[in-house]
Computed example of a mutant assay.
Amino acid sequence: MYTSIDLFAGIGGNRLGFDQAFGNNIKTVFISEWDEKAVETYKANFNDSIDVVGDITKVDEKDIPDHDILLADFPCQAFSLAGHKRGFEDGEFSEKR
């Protein structure tokens, strides 16, 4: 059994791929995402009892469980129809912090 943590989790797309690839051989033990709507969707996508913590920069590293795999999603909104399609020139994410 592998354990994973899901940072910058968005709606859980990265986790979904790992869950499908590893099947019952992976368990998510920690989730971090700061966008409230993404967290709402993440919780709807995964029916588990793990609390989604907010901003990872405000989490003490001692509070992050031991894990085998660290998942970290790329901020896709800057490249998709959900954002302004400015790619690496999109400053929206730094403005929200």
Rank of each mutant, 00 (worst) to 15 (best):
I50P: 03
A72H: 06
G12Y: 08
D90M: 09
N45M: 06
I64R: 01
I31T: 07
A9L: 07
G10N: 08
G13D: 01
K37P: 00
L16E: 10
R97G: 11
A44N: 10
F93Q: 09
I11A: 08
D68L: 03
A38S: 05
G13P: 12
G83D: 04
L70I: 14
E40H: 09
M1W: 03
D73N: 08
I11C: 02
V52R: 01
V53S: 02
F8P: 04
G87F: 02
P75Y: 00
A9Y: 05
T3S: 04
D73S: 15
I5V: 14
I31K: 09
K43G: 12
H84Y: 13
A21H: 05
I56C: 03
A78C: 06
K43P: 06
Q20D: 12
D51F: 11
N25I: 07
T57Y: 08
N14M: 12
K27D: 00
F93L: 14
R86A: 08
G91V: 13
F22V: 05
D6Y: 03
D60V: 00
Y42P: 04
F30L: 07
D6E: 09
A72N: 02
E89F: 12
G13Y: 10
F46E: 06
F22P: 04
D35H: 02
L16Y: 13
N25D: 13
A21E: 07
L7V: 09
I26M: 00
D48T: 08
F46K: 02
E61M: 12
E61P: 00
D63P: 01
Y42E: 03
D35M: 09
D63K: 08
L70C: 03
D35C: 06
A38C: 12
I26V: 09
A78V: 01
K27S: 13
N45F: 07
D66A: 11
P65F: 11
T57C: 07
A72Q: 01
Y42G: 07
F74S: 11
H84I: 11
L81Q: 10
D6C: 04
H67E: 01
T28N: 10
E89I: 03
L71F: 08
K27C: 01
S80Q: 00
I31V: 15
S49F: 10
N24T: 13
L71T: 07
F79Y: 15
K96Y: 15
A82I: 06
G87T: 06
I26F: 00
N24A: 13
P65K: 06
L7A: 12
G10I: 14
K43V: 10
R15I: 09
V39Q: 14
F46V: 13
G87L: 05
G17P: 04
K43S: 06
A44P: 02
V59G: 03
G91W: 14
E36D: 13
K85P: 00
G91S: 11
D19Q: 15
E95L: 15
I56K: 03
D55V: 11
E40K: 15
G23E: 05
F88N: 08
D60K: 14
V39F: 09
R15C: 10
I26T: 00
E95A: 11
D60Y: 09
V59T: 15
F8Y: 15
E89Q: 11
D73G: 14
D55R: 11
L70M: 14
I56V: 10
